[in-house]
Simulated scan of single mutants.
Amino acid sequence: MLCDQSPVKRSTIKVLKSGERVILSPQVTVQRYLLVFYWAINVGAFFGLATSYAAYNVGFWLAFLTPGIFYMLMPLVLWVCYKRLVRFAPQGSVVLEAFKACRSLFKDGNSANLFKRGNAFWENARPSAIASRGGDLSGVTWDDKFIDDLQRTMAACKVFRNIPIFNLANSGLGNSVNAMSSAMTLGGVPNDLIQNWNALTIVCCAPLINYGLYPAFSKMGYPISPMWRMTIGFTLGGLNMIYGGVLQTRVFLAASMQPVTECALGVSPISLWLQVPLFSLPALGEIFVNVTSYELAYTRAPPRMKGLVYAFCLFTTAISSAIGLACSAAVTDPYLVEPYWVLAALSLACGLDKEVNFFDPSLTSIKQDKAEVDVEETREKR
């Protein structure tokens, strides 16, 4: 709904008061909307720090009441903004029809064409192709356009296949980060306090990236394309795991323990504050990976399948959580260092995976916008 509020639906030229001609880009506008959105939800997440102290110093009743008040105000805010919101009528779910079409795709041994280039695989479910080979159309409730949209949807979802790896590199595998903090010197600081640096980093850095980094590179003629943003995010996730592996090794050594001993035998003199980069580095990566994935889900998915693509995008969080839970029993001392190296290698490898880029990586959004404007200007001249 937030992205639907964008007034820029196609690339157009706007003349500023200074006389400068600029391009209003739909994709860049949505990108900025989503960066502001991600900044806002992390402002809310950072208030978890105040909630913890409210529960400790006053009581749980205040910790529950404060966010409850904010939630109760939201219907009033939506009622005030209702007339100014862009609203689209519900189009119904396409999930059932998509499953039927996918079942038709794999009929008659067509699965052999799945990894071949071209449209041979998708032709198997097009009503026009089914009719041309004398097939039965009685159970077909879709048209050729639906298959085209389904093909674009599957291509759009390819970019999400590596995000579970980033999520694991974001928070560590299992309880590895908590296990490390339990063997560090707290200095009177709760071991869950450092986690708030994730939200704090996003709150501080998202505006700098939104209004500084991205516009600066665009003005220089080198806009940071979605491909490069994803690569930067996965690289930050890999560097985060490398730092975690080094820090965990230092914790073992500083506590005069070898990896074959138990952490309960001693506490490392290393301060808990050295864990701050473990939450700050992946927070920067989230700005590049998560926000970009939301952007691609909205801009690349067919209009009637945006909800389905967003569902796949958010489902990656469930996948990474399930992997983390499945590995939590195994990620214990003395096997606390190895998961960091494994996730570091996987995250860095995913950053180099060009197969997830289902659009032409050489054609940035600004080049696309300029091409669209040139076509429109030529049409107007004619």
Rank of each mutant, 00 (worst) to 15 (best):
Y82K: 10
L78P: 03
Q91W: 04
F70C: 13
L85H: 07
A125T: 00
A89F: 05
L73S: 01
A131F: 07
V95C: 03
K100H: 10
A89R: 14
C81R: 06
A125P: 02
S93V: 12
F106T: 03
V94H: 14
S132T: 04
N124R: 10
S104A: 08
D108E: 13
V86W: 02
S128E: 07
R103H: 09
L73C: 12
R133C: 08
L73K: 00
F121C: 06
V77D: 09
E97P: 10
F70V: 06
R126T: 08
W79V: 08
R126F: 00
G92Q: 08
A125M: 02
F99G: 04
V86I: 11
L85A: 08
A98C: 15
D136C: 04
A89V: 11
D136L: 02
R84W: 08
R126C: 10
K116D: 12
A129F: 10
S104C: 14
Y82E: 12
S111D: 10
L76M: 15
A112C: 12
V80N: 07
F115K: 09
E123G: 10
N113K: 11
S104R: 12
L96M: 06
G92L: 09
G135E: 00
A98M: 13
K116P: 00
R117Y: 14
P127W: 00
G118R: 04
R133E: 03
L76D: 05
C102L: 03
K83V: 05
R133Q: 09
P90I: 01
K100Y: 08
F106H: 15
R133P: 01
W122N: 05
S128L: 05
R87K: 14
G135P: 11
R103V: 00
V94K: 15
Y82M: 04
F121D: 03
L78S: 11
R103G: 13
F121G: 02
L105I: 00
A125C: 05
S104V: 01
A131D: 11
P127D: 15
G118L: 07
G109K: 04
M74P: 01
V94A: 14
N124Q: 14
I130K: 05
K116I: 04
R84N: 09
D136G: 01
F106W: 10
G134M: 00
K107Y: 02
F106P: 02
S93W: 09
C81P: 08
A98K: 14
A98P: 08
L105W: 06
G109P: 07
L96E: 13
L114D: 08
F88C: 14
F99K: 04
G135V: 08
P127T: 01
N110S: 15
P127I: 09
G92C: 04
V95W: 10
K100T: 03
S132L: 07
Y71V: 12
L114C: 01
F99E: 15
M74A: 10
Q91S: 13
G118N: 07
V86F: 04
G109T: 03
